[in-house]
Computed example of a mutant assay.
Amino acid sequence: MKALIETIVTPLVDYPEDIVVKETEEETKVIYHLTVNENDVGKVIGKNGRIAKAIRTVVYAAKSDVNKRIYLDIM
Rank of each mutant, 00 (worst) to 15 (best):
R50P: 02
I55S: 06
K47M: 04
A62V: 10
V20A: 14
D14L: 08
R56C: 01
V13A: 08
I19W: 06
V21W: 01
K29A: 14
T7R: 05
G46Q: 08
E23M: 05
E27H: 03
V9H: 09
Y60A: 04
V20R: 12
I51M: 09
N67C: 12
Y32D: 08
M1Y: 08
V58R: 07
G49E: 12
N48I: 00
D73T: 10
N37K: 09
S64D: 15
Y32C: 08
N48S: 13
N39M: 10
P11S: 12
V20E: 12
V44Y: 11
D65M: 00
Y15F: 09
R69D: 06
E27R: 06
N39F: 14
A54V: 10
L4V: 07
V41C: 00
I74E: 03
I55F: 04
D73H: 13
T24G: 13
L4A: 04
A3K: 12
N67F: 14
I8E: 05
V58I: 15
N67P: 11
T35A: 15
E6H: 02
A61M: 00
I45C: 02
V59E: 00
A62K: 04
K47W: 06
E23H: 02
Y60Q: 06
P11V: 10
K53S: 07
N67Q: 13
V58Y: 05
I31R: 14
Y71A: 13
I51P: 06
T7N: 10
L72K: 06
P16I: 07
T7W: 02
Y60W: 01
A62I: 06
K63G: 04
G49L: 03
T10Q: 02
E6M: 09
P16T: 03
Y32S: 08
T57S: 14
K2C: 04
I19G: 03
A3Q: 13
V66P: 07
V21M: 04
E26H: 09
L12Q: 01
N67G: 08
I31C: 12
Y32L: 06
A61S: 05
P16V: 06
V30F: 01
V30L: 01
D73M: 10
E23K: 10
V21K: 01
M75C: 05
I45H: 03
K2V: 07
Y32Q: 04
D40Q: 00
G46L: 05
Y15P: 03
Y71L: 14
V59F: 00
N37P: 09
T10I: 01
N67E: 15
E27F: 02
V30A: 01
K68F: 08
V21L: 08
K2W: 00
M1V: 11
T28E: 13
R50E: 15
L72I: 07
I70Q: 12
K63I: 06
A3D: 14
G42K: 00
K43Q: 04
I5G: 11
A62S: 15
E25L: 12
V59I: 07
V58M: 10
L34Y: 15
V9T: 04
I19Y: 03
K63W: 03
V59H: 01
V41P: 01
I19F: 02
